[in-house]
Design a binder for these strands. Structure first.
Lengths: 157, 157
DNA sequence: TTTGAAAAGTGCCAGTT
DNA sequence: AACTGGCACTTTTCAAA
């Protein structure tokens, strides 16, 4: 499937605000309701749109602290990796989890209320995974956080 | 405003899937349409729900590489920090941006197509900010990524 | 492919328990 | 507080251009 400028406009629109009606979307991209609706359906069934969610305000729940956890390991066989991935992913506090190139093997972003809450998480993590080499870096401030992908800019025609 | 179990259930529901109708939500939490709708309205106007968005599939756009960029600086006055925050935030490739405690001053997550694309971004970043101490760490695999906050578990009553 | 309008489904409000 | 019923509006389908 090939996307044209109108598709990209629609995607840019709904990844920034999905609460607008089809009618409003249609007028933004210069279409009428039906063809606009059909494009969105198509983008959804083709998998460009993965899901529609509400983003909650972390501050309201006291979840003000992001901790970046760097993990080094000497275990590298496939079974261990799978177990590790599953175990770590199961923690709801782990909101991001990457396998890295370079010095550290894994990077986690952990979202907690405060330092004591992180300490409790940390202990549970260590005991669940038997990790030894773990470095924690605390974020003081979240300057930017977005779910919006950097989409290709519109081509002229 | 105080949240009860029903509110937390509703929030957990819509932060995982916002495409369901009020009616379906209502049946999930054991309410009928109107009170359910009223609760959601209230949660929205109280700011617990920040926005509703569509999450797009990064792979479909070839955005397969996350790069974590650690930045050290010796500039620390307020003006410089504000300028820096504004300049860096303006890059659409920068999807996350934190001010850190500890060894590094800032951490960025940059979302790009491949290594050459990162190199192009890197050059633009350097020339826009006059940074000197920059370390880039590449993610090989995104094992987990979620927008779902770890909400407090439901209390008994 | 688009348009316009009908059918189906939701969101929203009033009155009531 | 919550439920029932109903109107208005939006989404979805479909026939015709």
């Amino acid at each position: 499937m090939n996307l044209d400028n109108t598709d990209l406009q629609l995607l840019a629109l709904i990844q920034s605000d999905d609460s607008i009606s089809i009618e409003v979307m249609a007028s933004h991209v210069g279409l009428s309701k039906t063809p606009c609706w059909r494009r969105v359906q198509k983008l959804e069934s083709a998998g460009y749109i993965k899901r529609r969610v509400a983003l909650l305000d972390a501050e309201k729940f006291g979840l003000g602290v992001s901790v970046f956890v760097q993990v080094k390991t000497n275990q590298h066989d496939a079974n261990w990796s799978e177990d590790f991935a599953r175990t770590v992913s199961a923690f709801p506090e782990v909101v991001e989890f990457y396998r890295m190139a370079g010095e550290y093997d894994y990077l986690l972003r952990v979202l907690v209320k405060d330092i004591p809450a992180y300490d409790r998480f940390y202990k549970r993590l260590i005991s669940a995974t038997a990790l030894t080499d773990v470095t924690s870096n605390f974020a003081m401030e979240q300057i930017k956080w977005t779910t919006q992908l950097p989409l290709p800019t519109l081509s002229k025609e």
